[in-house]
């Protein structure tokens, strides 16, 4: 059986977690992977805790339920015990430095939301998060660019993708080897 990898996104209702996860799943599918996308959210239109993820593999996914992620981006703290376990046991975690004050201690904290706002990309932190995932190497930046919706906002989305990608690379360059 080939190795399955998992990528998660966590945040609050309204931050576009499901949208970003759907884009990510589409990009991985177009890159030739079998994918399984799942999500959990509340009945609130805005404000409830949201967790969504994609498992991908070169073979059909046997089981879509995972107890940890290989990579995870957090755009907000979530106070749900069962999710905290998953978050803490995830391998690479990128967290927004203003909105995520809690665990996990090993998270790399980046000013995703703040910098997005400074560049006129408010509300696109979900797409910035996707850019970070491309930086880590989860998915090709070009694969994401191809599936990002070509609506009125496409240039903003493309800029947000690029911003996340660069934020991750800058941070990585600063790390002492």
């Amino acid at each position: 059986m080939s190795k399955e990898l998992s990528v998660g996104l966590v945040g609050r209702g309204g931050q576009g977690i499901l949208f970003a996860t759907t884009i990510l799943a589409n990009a991985l599918f177009n890159s030739g992977y079998y994918v399984a996308q799942l999500q959990s959210y509340g009945a609130e239109v805005r404000g409830g805790a949201v967790l969504a993820y994609v498992i991908y593999s070169t073979e059909r996914i046997e089981n879509p339920f995972t107890e940890s992620f290989d990579s995870l981006v957090m755009l907000h703290d979530v106070k749900i015990e069962a999710w905290e376990k998953i978050i803490v046991s995830s391998r690479v975690v990128i967290a927004d430095e203003d909105m995520v004050r809690g665990p996990p201690p090993h998270a790399v904290r980046l000013p995703l939301i703040k910098v997005a706002a400074e560049r006129g990309l408010s509300g696109k932190e979900n797409v910035v998060a996707l850019g970070c995932l491309a930086g880590i190497g989860v998915v090709g930046l070009d694969a994401l660019q191809k599936v990002i919706p070509r609506g009125r906002d496409s240039s903003g989305n493309l800029a947000a993708l690029r911003l996340g990608y660069e934020l991750w690379l800058e941070r990585k360059a600063k790390q002492v080897p």
Binding site: T22, Y34, V35, Q37, L38, Q39, P64
Partner: peptide
């Protein structure tokens, strides 16, 4: 809900 909202090939 897992089957209904789960998205796969």
């Amino acid at each position: 809900e897992f089957v209904g909202h789960g998205r796969e090939v």
